[in-house]
Design a binder for these strands. Structure first.
Lengths: 155, 155
DNA sequence: TTCATTCGCAACAACATAAGTTACAAATCT
DNA sequence: AGATTTGTAACTTATGTTGTTGCGAATGAA
């Protein structure tokens, strides 16, 4: 099963937007993510609905941040992109009549729910500003990449 | 993304096999899982390779347990079915040149790895005998289902 | 006003993967 | 020999993410 990369992509975009003056068009963002402007609009729509970004039509329009990175957590963005299923494995049947299967589902659910709880709780504690800070640290460590990274919109 | 149900199915089958005398054919198992004999053989092949089950061809052949349920953990079976990807969400790119994306991947990986570690560690602590015991408890609580559940091969 | 720019959205195609199916060979037992 | 049963390859189906096309609506500039 190919995994869902929307969360990763949106985090990437948001941090770039924070480091960039003015609005970014879907076209620009798509080039950065190696994808299509329509995919960008589709995915960013969820973030717009929650107020994390704003969009403007027409000349000079595009996408801008709706609030500072310090006020967005991984959990916020995860939810804004549609709370995709966390796990790629799950039960064969949701309401099995078979008691064996019920016991199996119970054992699996318990483990999965615990792991999901941990994951989301951790997501809730990490802000995009934290990631941006890590980016700054990486840029300081690798000055040869810094030129590219600091030059605005890029890969 | 539809999830992978192989782990769930194999746990289900193994416990039924434990409660059943003699070999079970792929046909019988497939009927129980509402699937196809070939899917059963394909999935059980992994368990056979690890010795959790044995298969015999020809008359009176079929599948039997290779060791007691108390000596199989959820982790064992998870690995035997091919260690499917645990998570349905992941990075857009595995080796990004972009330092922002690297920072994003690092933040996500850290959270995912921690959750996966917890999940697999928990899997390692649960034996199939534990699940079978839970099944016994459920059967005691719901005697009306017990007749069906105890009658050998069923759904 | 007219025109270029840009988002919004519906509809459809491409692609990946789990699951289901068909067909046949090989092994085993009666 | 013949029936049963697994082993496996090849193909099809189903589902979900991603990619693409097309067109409408809004915005700003000339």
């Amino acid at each position: 099963m190919r995994h869902d990369s929307r969360l990763s992509r949106m985090l990437h975009v948001l941090i770039h937007m924070d480091r960039h003056e003015g609005a970014a068009t879907s076209e620009t963002i798509a080039a950065m993510l190696n994808t299509n402007p329509v995919v960008v609009r589709r995915t960013m729509a969820g973030l717009r609905d929650k107020g994390y970004v704003r969009s403007e039509k027409g000349h000079g329009g595009g996408w801008t941040l709706g609030r500072p990175l310090s006020e967005m957590t991984l959990l916020d963005i995860y939810e804004a992109v549609g709370q995709p299923a966390v796990f790629a494995v799950g039960p064969a049947c949701d309401q099995p009549a078979c008691l064996v299967e019920q016991a199996v589902n119970a054992a699996l659910s318990e483990a999965f729910e615990e792991a999901e709880k941990l994951l989301l709780s951790r997501f809730g504690k990490v802000t995009l500003a934290d990631i941006a800070r890590d980016f700054d640290a990486r840029m300081a460590r690798y000055p040869e990449s810094a030129a590219r990274a600091g030059a605005g919109w890029h890969t």
